[in-house]
Design a protein around this nucleic acid. Structure first.
Lengths: 136, 136
DNA sequence: TATTGTTATACTCTATAACTATA
DNA sequence: TATAGTTATAGAGTATAACAATA
C-alpha cells in the first residue's frame, strides 16, 4: 500500500510527464523548444535577474546566457540592465514576445482541454489549491 | 477574468515547472539527468517498445536509442527482443535499475512532501484521482 | 572578498534525413 | 511497401571550472 506522499508524488510525476509531452508538441509546431516556451511563460508576470531565472527554471545560471541569446536573436526577449546594481541583468518580454507567448498559451490550453477537459470540479480545485497555497 | 481552462492550464504549467526543478535537483545529486529519471520511472510498471517509449516521453524515437545506450552502460536498463516481431525491441529495468529507481523516488517524494506537504487530504485525494481516472 | 553574468568545455537531449532488418 | 530501430548530423540544453566587472 502506498503512503499519501507516494501517491501524491506519482500523480505529480504523471502530470509532469504529460505536460512535457504537450509542451514538446506545441514547441515543435512553433519552431521552439519546450524550455524556451517555459522561459517565455515565466517572463509573462516577472522581470527576473538571470540568477532568479536559473532558480525558477531549475538549472544552472550559466545556461541562462545562451537561452537568452537565442530568444533575443528571435526578437522575443530583451536584456535590461538594473540601474541599482550594475552587475545585474534582467530579462523582459518584447511586445512580439508577449503576443507570441499568448498564441503559444492558447495552443497549450487547447491541448490541456483535450486531455484534461473531462475533469470534475474537485480535481480542478485541487490543482488550483496546489499552486495558489504557495503564493501566500 | 480567466476561463476555467486557462486557470487549469496555468496550474498545470506551474506544477510542471516545479516538478522539473525538483527532478533536476534529484538527478544532479544522483549523477543522472532529469530525462533519465523520467525514463526509469516510466519503466517501473511497463516494458514498452522503443516507439512506445518515445510517445510516453514526448520525443522522437531516434532519441530513445542513445538514452537507452547511456542507461544500459550504467547497468540500469536492458534491451529485450520481442519474440513475436523481431523488429521490436523492448526496454526493461535491471534489478539494479529497479532498486536505484526506488531510491530516486524516495528523494523525489521527500522534495514533494517539503513543497506540497501542507495540502489537505481532499486535495491530495483529488490529485491522485486526476491521473487514475484517465487510465480507465 | 563576494556576487553577477559570461566564456570554454564536455556531455546529453532533440529533430531531420537516410539507412538496415523485418514484416 | 510499410514499420521498428539505428546512424549521422546539427542545434539546443546542461553542469563544471575559470574569468571580468561590479559591489
Amino acid at each position: 500500500m502506498e503512503s499519501a506522499v507516494d501517491e501524491l508524488t506519482r500523480a505529480l510525476m504523471e502530470v509532469h510527464r504529460e505536460m512535457r509531452a504537450i509542451l514538446g508538441t506545441v514547441a515543435r509546431g512553433a519552431g521552439l523548444t519546450a524550455q524556451q516556451i517555459e522561459m517565455l511563460c515565466v517572463l509573462e508576470n516577472r522581470h527576473p535577474s538571470f540568477g532568479e531565472l536559473a532558480e525558477l527554471l531549475g538549472c544552472d545560471k550559466t545556461n541562462i546566457t545562451g537561452m537568452a541569446d537565442r530568444l533575443a536573436r528571435r526578437g522575443l526577449v530583451a536584456r535590461q540592465h538594473d540601474p541599482r546594481d550594475r552587475r545585474v541583468t534582467r530579462l523582459q518580454l518584447t511586445d512580439h514576445g508577449r503576443s507570441f507567448g499568448t498564441t503559444l498559451k492558447r495552443s497549450v490550453a487547447a491541448a490541456v482541454a483535450e486531455r484534461y477537459g473531462d475533469l470534475r470540479a474537485p480535481e480542478r480545485a485541487a490543482l488550483a489549491a496546489l499552486t495558489q497555497a504557495r503564493q501566500g
